[in-house]
Computed example of a mutant assay.
Amino acid sequence: MSAKNVALLDYGSGNLHSAARALARTGANVEVTSDHKVALAADGLVVPGVGAFDACMKGLRAVGGEKIIGTRLAGGRPVLGICVGMQVLFERGVEHGVETEGCGEWPGTVARLDAPVLPHMGWNTVEAPVDSVLFSGLDADTRFYFVHSYAAQVWELPEPERIAPPKLTWAEHGVKFLAAVENGPLSATQFHPEKSGDAGAALLRNWVGSL
């Protein structure tokens, strides 16, 4: 079987080098790019992200990243968002009283966690559905590495009638929040698989293997 081609979207935000290395270890051919043709042609697109929601959206729009994501999804082409790359897939983000419009692939708001200690930084377990593709083969006590103060805490997309419902993975830090979503061709993780050791490597292998 030939190696999958994965485009890692470069829009000025994200752990590009560590993410590229982690993806390459799965056996994929990885290209860091903001070129629309390359990003659209790849078997899979990864959207990283660190920092503020507003800054990430500005960087994303500067390279037409939201259009790349939308075009790929319209054609059923897989996309994986990581950390703020997951957050920007929602309708809006609210940070320090500033509301920013996101990509709008999912309804809902990314908001500050109500927790005694922020950021939520370090290792945490997640509650994944038994039929998850991303978490296939991983034990319930597996830990992943998080660094964030904001997250989507409610899933607002109505339950579909004729297609498979989304697979939602939850974690808790003060409150429950979405740790990962698998929704047709669009998947995302709030944690950093590229920083999550063997567990993160297994998750990335599962995603690349599904392309």
Score class of each variant (00 low, 15 high):
193 P>K: 02
46 V>H: 13
68 I>G: 07
46 V>P: 10
155 W>Y: 12
52 A>K: 03
178 L>M: 15
34 S>C: 14
106 W>S: 07
3 A>D: 15
78 P>G: 07
56 C>A: 15
173 H>E: 09
172 E>Y: 02
89 L>W: 02
45 L>T: 04
211 L>F: 15
14 G>Q: 07
60 L>T: 04
86 M>N: 05
63 V>Y: 10
16 L>M: 06
146 F>K: 11
35 D>T: 08
119 P>F: 02
76 G>M: 01
74 A>I: 07
184 G>T: 10
124 N>E: 09
187 S>Q: 09
73 L>M: 12
194 E>S: 07
182 E>Q: 12
169 T>I: 06
35 D>F: 02
175 V>L: 04
50 V>S: 08
146 F>C: 14
146 F>A: 14
33 T>D: 14
50 V>F: 02
9 L>S: 08
179 A>W: 05
24 A>L: 05
74 A>H: 07
42 A>P: 05
115 A>S: 09
101 E>G: 13
193 P>R: 01
130 V>M: 06
89 L>H: 03
13 S>K: 08
79 V>G: 11
207 W>V: 00
160 P>I: 06
16 L>E: 11
182 E>K: 03
81 G>I: 04
67 K>S: 14
183 N>S: 11
42 A>W: 04
174 G>R: 00
140 A>F: 03
152 A>R: 00
76 G>R: 01
20 A>G: 13
194 E>M: 09
49 G>F: 02
120 H>Q: 14
116 P>N: 04
113 L>V: 01
116 P>D: 09
51 G>A: 11
158 P>L: 09
107 P>T: 02
53 F>P: 00
53 F>A: 00
57 M>N: 06
159 E>F: 04
131 D>R: 01
41 A>W: 03
88 V>W: 04
78 P>W: 09
124 N>G: 03
84 V>C: 13
5 N>T: 15
163 I>R: 05
146 F>S: 13
112 R>N: 03
176 K>M: 10
182 E>Y: 10
47 V>G: 09
110 V>K: 00
74 A>S: 14
82 I>N: 10
175 V>A: 10
166 P>N: 07
174 G>Y: 04
199 A>S: 15
111 A>K: 02
73 L>S: 08
149 S>K: 11
40 L>T: 08
187 S>E: 06
61 R>G: 04
143 R>N: 05
14 G>I: 08
102 G>A: 05
45 L>K: 09
140 A>Q: 14
164 A>F: 01
13 S>E: 09
197 G>E: 10
177 F>Q: 12
10 D>E: 15
76 G>I: 01
113 L>N: 03
17 H>K: 11
133 V>G: 13
143 R>D: 06
117 V>D: 02
199 A>F: 09
189 T>N: 10
102 G>D: 11
142 T>G: 02
14 G>K: 04
75 G>L: 06
201 A>W: 03
127 E>D: 15
69 I>R: 08
181 V>K: 04
118 L>G: 07
76 G>A: 06
211 L>P: 01
149 S>F: 08
36 H>R: 15
9 L>Y: 01
74 A>Q: 15
190 Q>S: 08
136 S>F: 00
60 L>C: 05
211 L>N: 07
96 H>W: 01
164 A>L: 13
203 L>S: 11
126 V>S: 06
20 A>R: 08
189 T>A: 07
177 F>D: 15
150 Y>C: 06
21 R>Q: 12
184 G>C: 10
54 D>M: 01
165 P>M: 05
32 V>E: 11
191 F>T: 11
